Computed example of a mutant assay.
Amino acid sequence: MTSSTLKLANRRAFLAGGVALLAAPALAQQNSTEPDKVLGLGPHPVDHNISSFRALNWQPYFANLKNGAILVDTTSRALHFWTEDGQTYKLYPTSVPMTDDLTRRGRTSVVKKVVGPEWRPTPAMRKRNPEWPPYIGPGPDNPLGTHALYLGWTYYRIHGTHDTRKIGRRSSNGCIGLYNENISELFSYAKVGTQVLLI
């Protein structure tokens, strides 16, 4: 075996090993059957963490970027954001509603921004989960995390979460959840009036 043939064989082995290492977390995640607890539902099989990190163009979804634009894809569990000038694009993994009947789709906008939001369960949540507290103030126990973008639809928000296991899953009661560091960044870009489309 010549020196150049040996180098080529070593390079192929190195690349194949690297690809196997990169695939390992995804395979491990795919085969996970650990139970997870969602507030109010008790233990249930994991609905696997998935999120599509495919970049999208804004043009098929919005007529313009006035005030910026947020697209939430509930199927791929990803949130896309474009600034008004089109120069900044962000893509974040999200949690989405647990069931289709809790999922709202369509167009709305950001109507309020809150750092350290308070949380009160909706009347429907209280009916489903009477044991839930009527109020949780800002802090580590708050289901809305560190920041919240209130939408034009009553009770609907894009917010953070302290429970990072929820991201990438169908795990919310209707809202769209992000990691706290991601909602903090999105919060800095979004403004009252930012367009929102849930598909």
Rank of each mutant, 00 (worst) to 15 (best):
A63D: 05
W82K: 09
L6P: 01
L149M: 11
L197V: 10
R104L: 09
V19P: 01
P25Y: 12
P123L: 06
L91D: 08
V110Y: 00
K37T: 09
L56M: 09
L39F: 08
G116N: 14
I70P: 00
N182H: 15
A190C: 06
A124W: 04
R126G: 08
L91P: 06
F62Y: 02
Y61R: 05
L149V: 00
M98E: 09
T75Q: 14
L79Y: 13
R12D: 02
V19M: 08
V192R: 02
N31E: 01
G116P: 03
L151D: 04
V111E: 06
T33I: 02
V110D: 00
D163G: 03
L149A: 01
S32F: 01
K7A: 08
R169F: 09
H147A: 04
L178N: 04
N10C: 04
L144I: 10
N173F: 15
W132L: 15
D36H: 02
L102M: 10
G137C: 13
M125A: 14
T103L: 07
S188F: 00
P117F: 08
R170S: 14
L71K: 12
G42I: 08
S32P: 01
A24Y: 15
S171D: 10
R120L: 06
Y155G: 01
R169C: 14
P133I: 14
I50P: 01
E131P: 00
I199Y: 08
D163N: 13
L102C: 05
T75K: 13
V192G: 01
M125P: 13
N67F: 09
T75Y: 10
I158N: 02
T75E: 11
P143I: 11
H80P: 15
K66Y: 09
N31M: 01
K112A: 14
L22F: 07
S4E: 11
M1D: 08
E34H: 02
K113L: 07
G68V: 00
P138E: 14
S188I: 00
A28W: 07
G168N: 09
V114G: 06
D73I: 07
P45N: 05
S32W: 00
V196H: 04
D85H: 08
L149D: 05
T75L: 13
A190L: 03
G86D: 09
E185P: 03
S172L: 07
T108E: 06
L71N: 14
L27T: 03
S3Q: 05
G42C: 09
F53M: 12
V114K: 07
T5A: 12
V72K: 02
A148M: 08
N64I: 10
K112I: 07
P134H: 15
G40K: 02
N182S: 15
H147G: 02
N57R: 07
G17I: 07
P60W: 00
G42M: 05
Y92I: 06
S32V: 03
